[in-house]
Each structure stands twice: as structure tokens, then as C-alpha cells.
Design a protein around this nucleic acid. Structure first.
Length: 268
DNA sequence: ATGGCCGGTGGAACCGGA
């Protein structure tokens, strides 16, 4: 089973590129991020014509996630639970789908973790950065509960986290940014420590492999990128991992997203 | 992380992104 994750930066602008890539890569499941569309306006027909079931969790203008699957969804859940009473979250960044395969159930999440910039003078007082850290706490708590099920679980998405210096072209310039600073890395590490395997790093130590290149300043031709799109796997999923791939070539297509797809192969 | 960007909104600049 091929499972992919891709921040497409707007379904309206990326529809034809997405269709072309689906035909070429033929993934079984895809998590999309930044659909930037409300559910009613999501262009479904060509995706469904390729044989995909489609579930969206959108909002107007920004954010928004979706799941595509050739197998039907048994169940779909939208949004991460809130931890604090009186808390609220208008942002559409999380969708979970449960799929039955011949060898059992697989849970797949498409998530779009908040960017968190700007961090400002005092990062812990930045609204955007504290929202990012709280969202990571909520993801941690949710995952801890799900791991009790002891099922294959795939958390696929745009994490907006640079895990290590070798995951970016210019680590010194990034250090201190919301994507690459101590509080962010501690929470990402804490999440992995409850028993998740990062698929790409389980397969290679290779440095300077990226999933995002800015549109500005010739970042792509200069290979000035960062690796921020990740797949975290429960041990039941990690046991079935049989390959990781980053489809870098789509960054060279006409009207590309600034992110490229990451794919894993699971033996199910 | 810059070199000159991109998408969405709404119908021009501006916000958000990473």
C-alpha cells in the first residue's frame, strides 16, 4: 500500500498538477494539506474518476486538509480534540481516516501543523508560536490515546519542523525560526519518544534531502530547501515499512507547489 | 531565508506562508 503526503498550496491552483501526479504515482492513500478551500467548492469529480474516495476538512482561504483513498473509509474524524476548557480552534488542520485492508485496519492522518512564525522578541508570548506549541501538545495527547489501540497508524503531513541541521541547506540561518528552535524540536522529539518512527530517517541518514523549496530567491535552482514534511509511524506500521520516497521531480513541473510529495510503501 | 514569489480574497492592496 502506497501512502503519500503532499502540501499542495491550494487545490484550485494545483488541481491539474495533482491529477497528473496521481496518474503517474498511483498512490493508494494521499493526505493533502493547504487545500485552501471550503468543502463545498473542492473540485471532486476528476479525483473520484481516478477511483478515489475523498474526504475533506476545509475552511475559507487558508489551511484545510484532505484524505484520498482507493479503499473506502470505515470512519472519518475531523479536527484535534481541545485540551483546555474554553479553548477554541477555528483552523482546519487535521483529519483521520480508518481504512480496512485484507490484513486489517490502517489509520491514516493528514495533518498541517501550524507554522508558528513570527516568533518575535519573546517567542513564548507570540500568539502564533504559542498556538504551534499548544497544537503539538494536542497532537501528542491524541496520539498517546491512539497508540493504545496497537494498530498501524500513519501520521502524515506538513509538520513545519526541521528535525536536524542536515535537514536544511542553511541551518545557522534557520536557527531560532519557529521551524527550527529548541521548544519546537523538544516537542517533536517528545512525540517520537512515545513510540513513533519517522519513516524517512528510519530508511536513510542521507543529508540535504528536502521536501520544500521557497518560491523566492531561486531557492529551487540553488537547492536551498528544508525537510519539513514527515510520516510518523506507530510500531505496527513501522514493522510493515518497505520503502520511502520523495517525489522531488514535481517541483520542476509548471505551476508547482512549494512542497513535493513524500510516499511510503507499507506491506499490508 | 533570499534575488526579483505565490495563492486567495475580492475586485486593489493585503494577508499568510516557510
Amino acid at each position: 500500500m502506497k501512502i503519500a503526503s503532499w502540501n499542495i498550496n491550494g487545490i484550485k491552483a494545483r488541481h491539474d498538477v495533482l491529477i497528473a501526479w496521481l496518474k503517474e504515482a498511483s498512490p493508494d492513500v494521499v493526505g493533502l494539506q493547504e487545500i485552501k478551500s471550503v468543502d463545498e467548492n473542492f473540485p471532486r469529480s476528476e479525483i473520484e474518476a481516478l477511483g478515489y474516495n475523498l474526504e475533506t476538512h476545509g475552511q475559507k482561504g487558508f489551511n484545510g486538509v484532505a484524505l484520498l483513498s482507493k479503499l473506502p473509509f470505515d470512519e472519518v474524524n475531523r479536527g484535534l480534540p481541545l485540551i483546555l476548557e474554553n479553548d477554541e480552534d477555528e483552523q482546519a488542520r487535521f483529519i483521520e481516516g480508518i481504512i480496512s485492508t485484507p490484513s486489517g485496519v490502517v489509520r491514516i492522518v493528514s495533518l498541517y501543523l501550524p507554522n508558528g512564525n513570527p516568533v518575535g522578541e519573546n517567542p513564548m508570548e507570540s500568539d502564533k508560536y504559542s498556538y504551534k506549541l499548544r497544537w503539538m501538545d494536542r497532537l501528542h495527547a491524541w496520539t498517546q490515546e491512539r497508540l493504545k489501540l496497537e494498530e498501524p497508524l500513519v501520521l502524515a503531513g506538513d509538520y513545519n519542523v526541521i528535525p536536524e541541521a542536515k535537514d536544511c541547506h542553511a541551518p545557522d540561518a534557520w536557527w531560532g525560526d519557529a521551524l527550527y528552535r529548541p521548544e519546537t524540536l523538544e516537542k517533536f522529539q517528545a512525540l517520537k519518544n512515545i513510540g513513533l518512527t519517522e519513516a524517512f530517517r528510519a530508511s536513510t541518514d542521507e543529508p540535504n534531502v528536502y521536501t520544500f523549496w521557497d518560491y523566492q530567491a531561486g531557492a529551487w535552482p540553488r537547492n536551498n530547501g528544508i525537510r519539513i514534511d514527515h510520516m510518523l509511524l506507530s510500531c505496527e506500521a513501522a514493522d510493515r515499512l518497505n520503502g520511502v520516497q520523495i517525489d522531488k521531480y514535481v517541483r520542476d513541473w509548471e505551476k508547482p507547489s512549494d512542497h513535493v510529495p513524500i510516499l511510503i510503501e507499507l506491506d499490508v
